[in-house]
């Protein structure tokens, strides 16, 4: 990804994010149905999820195997998160939230495989998920509470004079949600991978190579952490937004 040409270091830390067709020439046009590296790595995520949650639990054992235990832990973790944040009535949305969580965490971890492609580092992917959450939550809010959902913006515990101002702030923050929701995940994944590539590029230079390799190892460790945390953050924010829709009163 980086090459030394004529004594000048060249980095291409962003090349890893290029979407390209899996078959055929690099310059082929990319239609929506073209099978690209995005398709491949998303399919791998599906495969990994199936391996853990379907193949891993096929024994249905009372005393679980290791794989089943992990699947149960993931299930219990997200189930408890949804229950704690949204309450009992949020549990019927648990499968959707669990889908998002599993897709994000598996994509993040698959993206940490060297030479891989990180689907969640693309704003197109995270924005679609964030907007899906945003619209779903807004629709649920209005269907469940009718006009009462608007009380989310009317902070009844604040002094009356402040309420209109707060309402404006609340409305703005509400509409900024999907933006921050999506950019947080894509930005974290992209930045981490780009930094890894930059350190890897420096590893070509003899003198700083040991430090660069140490840096790659350290950043990689950090990225493992970030991958899990960002999946968690995305999921718990989804739960929080869902809670606002189900119980809009402050």
């Amino acid at each position: 990804m980086a090459s030394e040409e004529g004594g000048k270091l060249e980095f291409h830390p962003m090349d890893q994010f290029i979407v390209k067709p899996l078959f055929g020439e690099a310059g082929d046009p990319i239609h929506f149905y073209t099978i690209t590296n995005v398709t491949f790595w998303m399919a791998l995520a599906i495969g990994a999820i199936s391996l853990l949650l379907v193949v891993g639990t096929r024994g249905r054992a009372i005393i679980p195997t290791r794989a089943q235990s992990m699947a149960e832990l993931a299930y219990g973790f997200v189930y408890k998160m949804v229950e704690d944040v949204t309450g009992k009535d949020g549990l019927k949305y648990f499968p959707y939230i669990f889908t998002l969580f599993l897709f994000i965490i598996f994509s993040n971890f698959l993206g940490l495989i060297p030479m891989s492609f990180t689907t969640t580092s693309h704003i197109a992917v995270t924005a679609i998920m964030a907007f899906a959450v945003f619209f779903t939550v807004t629709i649920i809010g209005f269907v469940k509470n009718g006009a009462g959902f608007l009380s989310l913006f009317w902070v009844s515990s604040a002094p009356l004079a402040l309420r209109p101002i707060l309402a404006i702030i609340e409305v703005i923050s509400y509409f900024v949600r999907p933006v921050s929701h999506s950019i947080r995940l894509a930005g974290n994944m992209m930045a981490g991978h780009a930094v890894l590539k930059v350190f890897a590029g420096f590893a070509q230079v003899g003198a700083v190579a040991p430090i660069a390799i140490l840096g790659v190892v350290a950043i990689y460790g950090l990225e493992v952490l970030v991958s899990a945390i960002q999946a968690y953050v995305f999921t718990i924010l989804t739960c929080v937004y869902l809670k606002d829709a189900l119980h809009p009163h402050h």
Binding site: V19, I30, H31, F32, Y33, T34, T36, V38, T39, M42, A43, A45, I46, I49, S50, L53, V54, P95, Y96, F98, T99, L100, L102, F103, T119, H122, A124, V125, I128, M129
Partner: peptide, 20 residues
């Protein structure tokens, strides 16, 4: 590349949802 990514993302999420 957006249509491509969005299309495959939607397919992936639907497949994961159905499996789950």
């Amino acid at each position: 590349t957006f249509p491509n990514q969005i299309f495959w993302l939607v397919v992936t999420l639907v497949v994961i949802y159905l499996i789950l």
